[in-house]
Design a binder for these strands. Structure first.
Lengths: 238, 238
DNA sequence: CGTTGGTTTGAAAGGACTCAAGAGGGGTGG
DNA sequence: CCACCCCTCTTGAGTCCTTTCAAACCAACG
């Protein structure tokens, strides 16, 4: 119990109308009238690295919008093996099983420090039935989740290990202070995303680095000197 | 063009209220009032093996409910590699990207002879905004699709090849005339589902057969003499 | 300065892939 | 009705890649 308390912190209640990432999230299309229907509290939360936001098998009452950081959805199979089935990024909605009243299919765990909004499922359900705008928006979010999951799966689980890593870096690359960087996670987590062992992740990164596809391989970042070169590598696998 | 004509056949218009699989599909919760709102035609179609129901990149106007057979969702990556991202089964709804007006993320291709219903997306959208029952039902279908995709992915893409095949068989096993059988597909397709080469699929099936996990390995079916034994094998990987 | 958790690296073993040849089955045309 | 062809599936041998097990390394932290 104490463990949870240190890992989660309440940041206050959200004011969605003035939210900085509103344009990319669930409420982007809502108008004043719709907002007036929101009575349940939307909480603004903060989790430490490694904290469990919800666990597989739980019947959650909430869904979540990620404001900052990364979250992994970890699925435990019956035979004891684990896989990361989706990587939640800034602006993504997750935990949508709560809308259906069904148990969570996977555990949501913070990768690094994480800030998110917690929305009561009941509110979203009723609002969705009353507001065509939110209805549309929810369809869209479901669709995005599905498409992300399938593209992710299709890209990160095909071919040789170094190609998987390269595609992974490409998918997550972002310009940051003039240089293009991609985030890295614990090698074990990266392995769980692509179904390779952590040693292989490490070796693949080393070999990409030798080929000058990436530089400054660190614990949580790499820089990509030439994005086009990396793209070509992904496609041709030279 | 002629190629398409022989592979697709119109079976007439559907009467959803008396549909034999209505309980498992999109309209299961609708009442008389909702049905009265359905004006657009729902067609009953038939595709031959290998026919493309829709292609990746197309902006479809319809979604589909599978009545009989299997459909593969084949995703072509930018680098030319392909993966089967989902296997559509009896009662499943697919092609939901049409609801969002976005392009199909993958091609839908008939695996064997297939019977399905074609629903105009526009109808579902308006109906969904008017009927809370259909709204709920659609959420549920999206959720099912996502959960299927993720479980599928997590199960069929982890561990040794023979274990993947075993899990695959387990997931598709059904009692048929007293014996438990599982459908098989072309070895290449099975390979695309689990990211293994077709030769490896063949070898794995042979090795499962040697261990008496399965018998009568044929082109399109295997029989499973002892379901519990197969389950144990999946979990322990002895 | 030793401990701890995570990362890298090495060597050997095992699994999957490639290429290639052969076998089976269904359909077609003589 | 049979011979033939084509497509698919199986099987074999060698190579390449990934895993496994182990040890060394590194940075953060008390």
């Amino acid at each position: 119990m104490r463990d949870i308390e240190v890992k989660i912190a309440w940041q206050g209640q959200s004011n969605c109308q003035s939210c900085s990432i509103r344009s990319s999230v669930l409420f982007s299309e809502l108008n004043e009238e719709d907002f007036s229907k929101i009575h349940a509290p939307i909480d603004d939360l903060h989790f430490e690295s490694g904290a469990t936001i919800y666990a597989q098998g739980e019947h959650g009452q909430n869904l979540y919008t990620l404001r900052e950081g990364f979250v992994k959805l970890l699925h435990l199979n019956e035979d004891g093996t684990e896989r990361i089935v989706r990587l939640i990024k800034h602006g993504d909605l997750f935990g949508m099983e709560a809308l259906l009243g069904s148990a969570h299919e996977s555990s949501a765990i913070a990768l690094g420090r994480v800030y998110l909004c917690r929305l009561p499922a009941s509110m979203i359900v009723t609002l969705g039935e009353e507001s065509p705008r939110l209805h549309r928006q929810m369809m869209k979010k479901w669709g995005e989740a599905l498409s992300q999951s399938e593209t992710w799966f299709s890209q990160m689980n095909t071919g040789r290990a170094d190609l998987r890593i390269a595609r992974f870096l490409l998918a997550l690359a972002k310009e940051h202070e003039g240089v293009i960087k991609a985030p890295l996670f614990k090698r074990e987590d990266m392995g769980l995303m692509m179904d390779i062992k952590l040693e292989t992740v490490s070796r693949s990164l080393a070999s990409l680095s030798e080929m000058n596809m990436v530089t400054d391989v660190g614990r949580s970042f790499v820089t990509i000197p030439d994005l086009e070169k990396l793209k070509k590598f992904c496609q041709q696998g030279l």
